[in-house]
Amino acid sequence: MSSSAMEEEAPDLLCQLENVQGLVVALCAVRWKRHQDALVELSEHGIVLIVDECCCLQAKVYLKRELFVRYEYNAQGRPRFGVSLGLFVDCLNTFSVPGQSSSIQIQYPGPDMQVLLTSLDSPDASICAEIRTRIPEAVAWNYNFEPAGTSPLTFTVRSAALKEAIEDLEWPGSSIQIILQPDPPSVILRGEGHGDLQIDLTYYVNTDLLAAFQCDLGVSFKYKYKFLRATTSNLPSSPIKESRGSKVTVGRGGMLKVQHLISVSKLSTSHPYVDSIGYKPPGRIAYVEFFVKPEESED
């Protein structure tokens, strides 16, 4: 067979991942309801998975090619396909063994335009799964996130603290108001409804909680609670990189961007040499972004 014919038969993407459970955790972070369709886009730089809700909430999971131990990209342009997020996660879970790093191979497309998953852990058995894809619908919401002004309006907060604060704001039963003010430099989360609840995060007072803050002009916007909660509700506890936290940025018109870093590294094993020098292999990180539109002002 000629080399040109072999190239024509090569799939658009063939990649291998060391820790399938880490991928499951990253994808579950953007799974805020049972039935969700996702758009998957492939490129030479990696894989992007996008989910959208009512043109008000959008989430993206970035899986850069450096995250994979093998990444062979043969497509022209950027292939896109639709898939059920729940089905994709459930299939990946079948390859996951609790407490162990399970390696898989991902191929697209298969003979019928499927996503093909193959376990790489057992030399004596072949475990495979096929996920049917669909023609993707265009993502309805083009978020076009832009800075609110010449200086960014942003803060970095410990991920677990942000998740806890948003969950605490559920009981007032209303929208959540986010206020950034430069003097004193602080972030205020406020809910009003059946009761009033306000959570203040003051910069310089507790740098372990609010690690970074930048705001030259005070702003205030309201967001629907269910959309704001979706940005943190499925964050894992252990794989969150607490040292770097979650970054929240307010863009033009109140568009909110929430960014998380989730580790998908292979589970470490004890080794005398590794333990003696304190060396740890570089982590592989999945980047997760949420975009939330504010409620329209009554004005």
Results as ranks from 00 to 15, higher is better:
residue 6 M to Q: 12
residue 6 M to A: 15
residue 10 A to E: 09
residue 12 D to S: 13
residue 13 L to P: 00
residue 15 C to I: 05
residue 15 C to A: 15
residue 18 E to F: 02
residue 23 L to N: 01
residue 23 L to Y: 02
residue 24 V to T: 09
residue 25 V to S: 11
residue 30 V to F: 07
residue 33 K to C: 10
residue 34 R to P: 02
residue 38 A to Q: 06
residue 42 L to E: 02
residue 42 L to M: 11
residue 49 L to A: 06
residue 49 L to Q: 02
residue 53 E to A: 14
residue 53 E to L: 10
residue 54 C to Y: 10
residue 58 Q to F: 05
residue 61 V to C: 14
residue 66 E to A: 11
residue 71 Y to D: 02
residue 72 E to Q: 11
residue 79 P to I: 06
residue 83 V to S: 02
residue 84 S to G: 08
residue 86 G to N: 10
residue 96 S to Q: 13
residue 100 Q to D: 15
residue 103 S to L: 05
residue 105 Q to F: 02
residue 106 I to V: 12
residue 107 Q to A: 12
residue 111 P to Y: 09
residue 112 D to L: 13
residue 114 Q to G: 06
residue 115 V to R: 04
residue 118 T to Q: 15
residue 118 T to L: 13
residue 122 S to Y: 08
residue 123 P to W: 03
residue 124 D to S: 12
residue 129 A to R: 04
residue 132 R to E: 15
residue 133 T to S: 05
residue 133 T to E: 05
residue 135 I to K: 14
residue 136 P to N: 08
residue 136 P to H: 05
residue 138 A to D: 06
residue 147 P to F: 12
residue 149 G to L: 12
residue 151 S to T: 09
residue 154 T to L: 13
residue 155 F to Q: 00
residue 155 F to W: 07
residue 157 V to Y: 00
residue 162 L to V: 03
residue 166 I to S: 04
residue 169 L to F: 05
residue 180 L to I: 04
residue 180 L to M: 15
residue 185 P to M: 10
residue 186 S to D: 04
residue 188 I to F: 02
residue 192 E to G: 00
residue 194 H to I: 12
residue 208 D to C: 04
residue 230 A to R: 00
residue 231 T to H: 05
residue 232 T to M: 04
residue 236 P to Q: 07
residue 238 S to H: 10
residue 239 P to N: 13
residue 249 T to Y: 03
residue 255 M to F: 01
residue 258 V to Q: 04
residue 258 V to I: 15
residue 259 Q to M: 14
residue 262 I to R: 07
residue 263 S to N: 13
residue 265 S to K: 04
residue 278 G to L: 06
residue 280 K to F: 10
residue 282 P to Q: 09
residue 286 A to E: 01
residue 289 E to Q: 15
residue 291 F to S: 01
residue 292 V to R: 03
residue 295 E to D: 14
residue 295 E to F: 08
residue 297 S to W: 08
